[in-house]
């Protein structure tokens, strides 16, 4: 494990991406200290104020202001909290549920497997965004509902992975040895199988965080996201869309933030993959 971690972040790009992710996390964690302004403070006199380097700009509001005169940079910094929180919590929740369900289905097989796999097949039948949109329409907006709407489907990803790995692992010698020694199913699943299949689960989880962040932004963009005045990048892009002709900065910067964070996660997760799971190597 240690030697593998040594291989983590093998090249400069991955290291840069890792730093980028770290920067976003720090930004989110210390948002109140970093943000130059209160992200919810409106000032109609600063409505659609351009970024600092343009005419009428002001360095106190480096990336300009939105339609209500709120500082865009501060809102992006606080918006990182929403994106990262939802991305991480959804994937964590989904991983815990998915791993448990996948272990149970793959190890116990029989009726348990049929039930879980059946549910997985049904959920796989829904395009992701459509499913989430339907659930958000049902539950109404809000961070918690968003987490639930995404997690209801997201758990399928680790579940399928774990089930497949478990099916393979249950036939291996070490598991048979444990069974011969009279270990209980639970202790075999958690004690023997789980540690051996954790690497691919982590690899997939990191990539999924990026996808969940895009999904969250898409839902917010469609108006099914978090409640104001909470800043979410997706809803900032949506709000700015109306002003794109004469105030491009309102939507452009939050979109750029999504792109950067997701890109960093994707690049960094490739490095994690290479380090943790040699099977993925080219």
């Amino acid at each position: 494990m240690i030697s593998r971690l040594g291989k983590l972040l093998p090249d400069k790009l991955a290291r840069l991406a890792g730093l980028g992710v770290l920067a976003f996390i720090v930004m989110a964690a210390f948002a109140p200290l970093i943000a130059p302004q209160d992200p919810a403070a409106t000032d109609l006199f600063r409505r659609l104020q351009p970024p600092a380097w343009l005419d009428e700009g002001d360095w106190a509001f480096p990336l300009g202001c939105d339609a209500l005169g709120r500082d865009i940079l501060s809102r992006i910094i606080f918006g990182a909290r929403v994106s990262i929180f939802i991305g991480v919590v959804v994937v964590l929740l989904a991983t815990v549920i998915g791993v448990m369900a996948g272990l149970a289905a793959g190890y116990l097989r029989g009726a348990t497997d049929r039930l879980i796999s059946g549910l997985v097949d049904v959920l796989l039948g829904f395009p992701y965004l459509i499913f989430a949109v339907g659930l958000m329409a049902m539950m109404g907006p809000g961070v918690l509902n968003m987490v639930l709407a995404l997690a209801y489907k997201e758990w399928v990803v680790p579940c399928r992975l774990v089930r497949g790995e478990t099916l393979a692992a249950r036939e291996t010698e070490y598991v048979e040895a444990a069974r011969a020694m009279g270990a209980s199913s639970l202790s075999i699943m958690v004690g023997e199988i789980l540690p051996n299949i954790l690497s691919p689960v982590i690899v997939v989880g990191t990539v999924r965080i990026a996808q969940v962040i895009i999904l969250e932004a898409s839902l917010s963009f469609l108006g099914l996201g978090v409640q104001p005045p909470t800043a979410s990048w997706g809803s900032m892009v949506a709000d700015g869309r109306a002003f794109i002709l004469d105030a491009w900065w309102v939507s452009t910067f939050p979109g750029l933030a999504i792109l950067l964070l997701v890109l960093c996660i994707n690049v960094a997760s490739q490095a994690v993959r290479d380090a943790l799971d040699p099977r993925f190597h080219d």
Binding site: A210, I214, A217, S218, F221, G234, V237, A238, R241, I244, L245, W248, S251, T252, P254, G255, I258, L259, V262, L263, N266, V267
Partner: peptide, 22 residues
């Protein structure tokens, strides 16, 4: 490919619309 999977479609669409159409 990395850029492609990381681009939020709604945002990229708006930028293309403004750039190429408007």
């Amino acid at each position: 490919a990395l850029l492609g999977v990381s681009l939020p479609g709604f945002w990229f669409g708006i930028l293309m619309l403004i750039g190429f159409a408007v």
